[in-house]
Design a binder for these strands. Structure first.
Lengths: 250, 250
DNA sequence: CATTTTTCAATCATAAACAACCAAAAATAA
DNA sequence: TTATTTTTGGTTGTTTATGATTGAAAAATG
């Protein structure tokens, strides 16, 4: 494997997972520890990543011109922990629904080799799903040009042909009275239906989403389990009698 | 193999793979290591690529990357003429189905500002469709990881919810007895249904597809109108009593 | 806090890739 | 045709990348 090929792969994996061990990279590139260490040192000099004990992490610098894979987003590390936790809930043979969104995207690397079936409305997730050889169904529908998600009545109809063991959704607002909310009514309708088609529904949301409300209501709090990162104890106290909350400590 | 021919091939391979080893190029061009090294040095001086230890890698210039990619396609100009002609058949308000494939992809720029609705099974077309602000519905279905097309029973079911004014399909084989054929049975089933759901069906195929057959039958010749480029008169004579043929002169 | 385990940087031998050179072959010109 | 130039492929010694090893440093464990 050639050097630039390896470097690209490293950056790409980091874009998906935010953190990666040297061991994982050794396997992914079929090269030795020494080589990976050298690669990481070089990429760190180029400010493409940050070395950490045992592996590497993406730099959370606000950057002007970062290429596709290099773009980091807000709370990337927290979202990665949440995604990883969510994937531990997925069992072999499950049929799951993956909603559009950055956090659900980060689940995909951890779903590899689980022998599951994924249904999604997120066109942006297809590349990663295909790369990790996960059997994927896309629902039909109107392509929302901005977010590249599928919405509308045909999406609703297409989605309702499936039933899920688990569904994983991103969410913009989690509020005691307003419940789960999201900006776009059409996406809200898809999320709402996905929840009702599943045995268990999980909301993946970092701490910034609590006490927020957005335009369109998706569901009541008790209709899904929340997976989140470090939040204040009083926030947990506020919500704990409304629904179940899994807190991931990163 | 002549020098410019070799250089073109190197750039073409690089356009597909982003990185390439010297050994691969030696095999692809049937020339020696020394020659390839000289080629790479020269192409590097021309800023067409970047040499790396063991081979070569793309320069990170997106624009050039794209132009190279376009050039690399076989019969690109003919396909573009065919695509342009096909788009002249589309009228304001039409609902059309666009099949996966390079020729149908080339239709998209010419569809801009026609105020039409497009339904497609080609995930690869979405970017161009969105870029040209065309209202697009994607059918649902299993994501075929290699070609990024939607297939399977759920795709069939999803597609059958629509009716079309016109459908435009690529095709691998056009043969007097075998009719229209394509390699993949699952894609063939989708194409077949699309034809039956339309008022008028058009096959977009350059001259190399005539008298060829592939594995899976899609339809009889008379079920669609063929749009093609310069072909021999005797080919037209062979086919003209079977179906209508539009010949685009480029 | 001491011990154990893991990860690290530095070094080294090896195998691969390299540039430079040369002679043969091919293309071009006379 | 022959002479000249260009291109090619093999050979040379040199450079580079790689993977294994080692002792040091850092985490993890008890």
């Amino acid at each position: 494997m050639l050097t630039p090929e390896r470097h690209r792969k490293i950056i790409e994996i980091l874009g998906e997972k935010s953190v990666v061990t040297i061991q994982e990279l050794v396997e992914a590139t079929a090269s030795s520890e020494s080589t990976i260490r050298r690669d990481l040192s070089q990429l760190q000099r180029e400010k493409k990543l940050k070395r950490v004990h045992g592996g590497a992490s993406l730099t959370h610098q606000k950057s002007e011109e970062l290429s596709v894979f290099e773009k980091s987003e807000r709370n990337a590390l927290e979202k990665d922990s949440i995604a990883q936790y969510a994937c531990d809930l997925v069992e072999t043979g499950d049929c799951i629904y993956l909603d559009a969104g950055t956090t659900t995207l980060k689940m995909i690397p951890y779903l590899k080799n689980k022998e599951i079936t994924v249904v999604t409305n997120a066109i942006s997730h297809l590349e990663a799903l295909s790369e990790h050889e996960i059997k994927t169904y896309l629902i039909g529908g109107l392509v929302k040009s901005k977010t590249k998600a599928l919405v509308g009545s045909s999406a609703i109809k297409s989605l309702s042909a499936y039933r899920f063991d688990k569904v994983f959704l991103g969410m913009n607002g989690i509020h005691i009275e307003a419940g789960y909310t999201t900006p776009d009514p059409e996406e809200a309708a898809v999320k709402e239906l996905a929840i009702s088609l599943s045995q268990k529904a999980f909301i993946l949301a970092d701490h910034t989403k609590f006490h927020e409300t957005s335009f369109s209501k998706v569901a009541e709090l008790n209709e899904a389990i929340i997976i989140t990162d470090d939040i204040d104890d009083d926030v947990i106290y506020d919500f704990q009698d409304k629904t179940e909350i899994k807190v991931v400590t990163s």
